[in-house]
Structures are given as C-alpha cells and as structure tokens.
Computed example of a mutant assay.
Amino acid sequence: MTDKTAMLPESFLFLLEQEEKRRQLREDAGLPALTILIDAAHSGGGQARHIRRFLLGLYNASHWPFELNRLRALDAELQQAALQVLALDWNGREVHTYVPGGDELFQSWWEWEASA
C-alpha cells in the first residue's frame, strides 16, 4: 500500500477494488466480442452494415447516431457481442484503440458507409 492509499478509508478502497474488478470483467468479455463484431463487419453479409453502424456510433456518435432497431437485425450471438462491446466502452477507453490500426479501420468504415 502506498502512503496515499494508506490515508483512504477502507470502504473507499474496497469500492475502488470492486470497480477495477468490474472494469476487468468488461474488458475480458468485451475484447473477444469486439473481434467477433469486426469479423462480422467484414463478412459482407446482411448484418455487416448494422454492425459497422453500431461500431461507428461508438467511434463518433454525433456523426453516426445508432438506431437501436438495428440490433433487432442481428442474430443472438452478434446482439450479445454488441452489448459486451457497449459495456467495454464504459471503461473510458475509445473502442477503436483496443484494435491495432483501429483508427484506420474505423475510418475506412466511415468512408464506406458515407458512400453507401
């Protein structure tokens, strides 16, 4: 324990530890889910466009607002993956930063969807 944490009340330290556990759980579930969505976004299937729009909504919500009805167009596995990625987004880190070359990938989707 550092000098700073020694001065914090035990209950506060407990809350910090609990939040760190929740953050780690979101990451443990969210990273594989993000991979599932990225693969599906490249698939060219009917669900791919909805997934790209969902991910672009996380990337830049003001430019790419996401219509929740689009989730109904996804199969159950992809719906669950989308919810896990949404939870991952709560960790305070931009979703595209979890992926090597994520900014370029999301920008390519941006251009693709903007021209559609």
Rank of each mutant, 00 (worst) to 15 (best):
N69R: 10
W109A: 10
W90T: 15
R72C: 06
K4S: 09
L74T: 01
W112M: 14
P32Q: 02
I36S: 08
A61V: 09
Y98F: 05
F66K: 09
L71R: 03
H50D: 10
R49T: 08
D3W: 11
L56K: 09
Q24G: 05
L71I: 05
N60G: 12
A61E: 13
E111D: 10
G101K: 07
Q84I: 12
F54C: 01
D75L: 02
E104H: 06
T35F: 11
I36A: 08
R26T: 14
D3I: 12
A41F: 06
E67R: 04
L78Q: 02
G57I: 00
L68W: 12
L58I: 08
G30Q: 01
M7D: 07
G44D: 02
L58F: 02
L105S: 02
E77G: 06
F54K: 01
W109H: 01
R70E: 13
G46Y: 10
E67Y: 09
E27S: 14
N91C: 11
R70K: 12
G46C: 04
T97R: 04
A41S: 07
F12W: 06
Q47V: 03
I51M: 02
H96T: 06
D39Y: 12
R23D: 08
E94K: 06
E17M: 14
L74N: 03
A61T: 13
F106S: 09
E94P: 12
A6V: 10
H50A: 04
L8V: 09
Q47F: 04
G101M: 05
A116D: 07
P100G: 04
R72D: 11
R22V: 14
A81E: 01
H96L: 07
T2V: 04
A73M: 05
Q80P: 03
F54S: 02
P9W: 00
V85W: 05
F54L: 04
A87F: 13
D28A: 15
L34V: 12
G45W: 08
E17C: 13
L58P: 15
L8M: 12
K4R: 10
H96S: 12
T2P: 01
R72W: 05
G92Y: 02
P65W: 15
R52F: 02
H42D: 07
M1F: 03
A81C: 03
G45Y: 08
A6D: 06
H50N: 09
W110T: 09
A82C: 07
M7G: 08
A87W: 09
I51Y: 01
E19F: 07
R26Y: 14
Q24K: 11
T5N: 14
Q80N: 09
L74S: 00
G45H: 11
E67W: 10
G102F: 01
D28R: 14
T97K: 04
G30D: 03
A73H: 09
L86G: 11
I51V: 06
R53Y: 08
R49A: 06
G101E: 04
N60T: 14
L105A: 03
E113P: 00
E10I: 11
L86V: 05
Q107D: 07
G46K: 06
R72L: 10
D89W: 00
L34F: 09
R49H: 09
G45V: 06
T97L: 00
R53V: 06
D28K: 15
E67T: 08
L25R: 09
